[in-house]
Design a binder for these strands. Sequence first.
DNA 1: CGTCTCACG
DNA 2: ACGTACGTGAGACGA
Length: 425
Amino acid sequence: MDITINQLEQDLIRVLVKIELNGVKIDIKKLNDVEHQLLNRLQTTTEKITKIAGAEINLNSNEQLSTLLFEALELQPKVTSKGKSGLISVDKSHLAKLKEDHEIIPLILDYKKINTLLSFCNQLKEVHPKTGRLHCSLNQIGTATGRFSCSNPNLQNIPNVKLKDKDSETDELKIIASKFREVFIVEKGCVLIGADYSQIELRVMTEMSQDSFLLHAYNNGVDIHELTASKVFNCKISEVAEEQRKIAKTINFGLIYGMSAGGLAKSLTTITNKHHSKEDAEKMMSGYFNEFNGVKSCLEGLIDYADHYGYSKTLFGRTRPIPELASNDLEIRERGKRLAKNSPVQGSAADIIKMAMVNCDKAIAEKGLKSKMILQIHDELLFEVPENEVEIMENLIKHEMENVVRLSIPLTIELGKGANWAVAH
DNA sequence: CGTCTCACG
DNA sequence: ACGTACGTGAGACGA
C-alpha cells in the first residue's frame, strides 16, 4: 500500500472518532409518529392478506409465499428464475410483474415495504441515553475498495425518497418513506449542511482515461449523459430524446461497474420497460467504445495492470488484490475483470472524499469553529453548523472539497442546507 | 451460517 | 441455453 494512503488513513482516524462521538440528532417525536402510522398500516394490510389467503401465512418466508402464490392461488410465474436454493424468486421486481394477476400481490408488496421501513424505525430509535443522539460506527477498513462501511446502525442506507407533485396524494407509503431523512435534525440554533460530489466516479474515470470527449465535456459544462447519448445514437446533442438520455445514463453507470452486455441489457429492460436483448446492448457498447476510445483503452489497461500485479490500484495508490483474475473458472475471471475496472474508480473516489474529510476537519479546527462533521455517505458529507457559522462553513466546505486534489477537470459539489437531511440534500 | 431480500451510494 | 454489473449492512428464514 502506498505511503500516502497509509498517512491518509492515519490522519483520518481522529476525524472518524469525532464523527462517531458527535453522533446525529434524531427527531424522536417524528420518528414515533412515522412508526405509529406504519404499525397501523401493517395491521390493516396483514388482515386483508389473511382474508384473501384464507390462512395465516408467514410473509417473511419466501418458501411459504412461493407456495401460496404458485400452488394455492395457482399464479403463473412470469420468469422462473431460481436461486441457489431452487426457489422461484418472489422479490419485488418479480412480484411487480404479477401485479395485474391477483389482488393479493399489491398487498404483499405493501407488506414487505412496511416491514423494511419498520426496521429502519427500530434502528433509528437506539439513541444514546446520555447524548440523546445516534452514534454509528464508520468502519474504516470495512470494504475491499477503500470506502467505509457503516453499522450499528447503518446510516449509509437510510431511504432517500423525494416526492414528485403527482405522488403527493396517491402513494401513502412513499410519503411515509420520504419522512425518514426528515428525522435527521440538528440542535437548536444550528443548520444542517449537506455537500455531495457531483458525478465523482465518472470524473475519476475521466481523469484516469484522459478521454478527449469526457475531458472536453467536464471542462465545458456539457451534460455528460446527453453527450453519451449523442455519441451512442449518432445524433446532435440538441436532438437527444429523453429516453435516449436515460439509456446513456445507464451506460455510464454500467461503465463504472465494468458492465457486460448482458448486465446492460437487463438494466435497460428495467428502466425502459421495453425488452432489450443482449445483442442490442452489445451494439450500444461497441458504439460507445468506438467513440470514447480513451475509456476503452483505459479499461483494457486496468485489466492488464491487475492481471500483471495481482491487484488493482487507485489514482492515489490504494490497492486491492484481485485473485479472481488467476482463476481457472471463466465466470470468476470475468468477475475479476469487472473488479479490475471498478475498484480503481470506486476506490479513487473514496480516496478523494477521505482526503477532503481530513482537510475539512483541519480547516474547522484552525478557524476555531464550532461546526461538526456528522456523517459521510460515500460521496456526501453532512455538517451540523451553528447559525452564525453558516456562511463561513459553506465557503469552507466548498473550497476544501472542490480543491482537495487538482485533476484535469474540475471537481464540483452540490450544497444544501436546512433544518433536516431531507431539505439539505 | 448460508441464502434471500431490500435499503443506500 | 442461461442469467446477467460494483460496493455495503440488517433481518428473516430454515437447515
